[in-house]
């Protein structure tokens, strides 16, 4: 498998933004400030277990189910 980090990041952003592009943009910036740079991850990126765990942790802190 590959690309799971991007999948989780996008799920998190979509769940938080609920279709609001302004919130999607600020959520992306919040992730960046937490050390998750969405643009560094592509559908072919390796499934880095540490980053997958980090995205899940952040989602939990933000109260988002992914």
């Amino acid at each position: 498998m590959a690309g799971q980090v991007l999948v989780l990041i996008n799920r998190l952003i979509d769940a938080r933004a609920k279709g609001n592009p302004t919130v999607a943009s600020t959520t992306r910036t919040k992730l960046l400030l937490k050390g998750i740079k969405a643009e560094n991850w592509t559908p072919s990126s390796a499934d880095d277990p540490a980053m997958l765990a980090k995205v899940r942790d952040v989602a939990r802190e933000m109260g988002v189910a992914i």
Binding site: R16, N20, V23, T26, T27, K30, L33, K34, E61, M62, G63
Partner: peptide, 12 residues
């Protein structure tokens, strides 16, 4: 503070 605030609200 800003990190937690950002977790809890979507307001700027």
């Amino acid at each position: 503070v800003m990190d937690r605030l950002g977790d809890l609200t979507d307001l700027r």
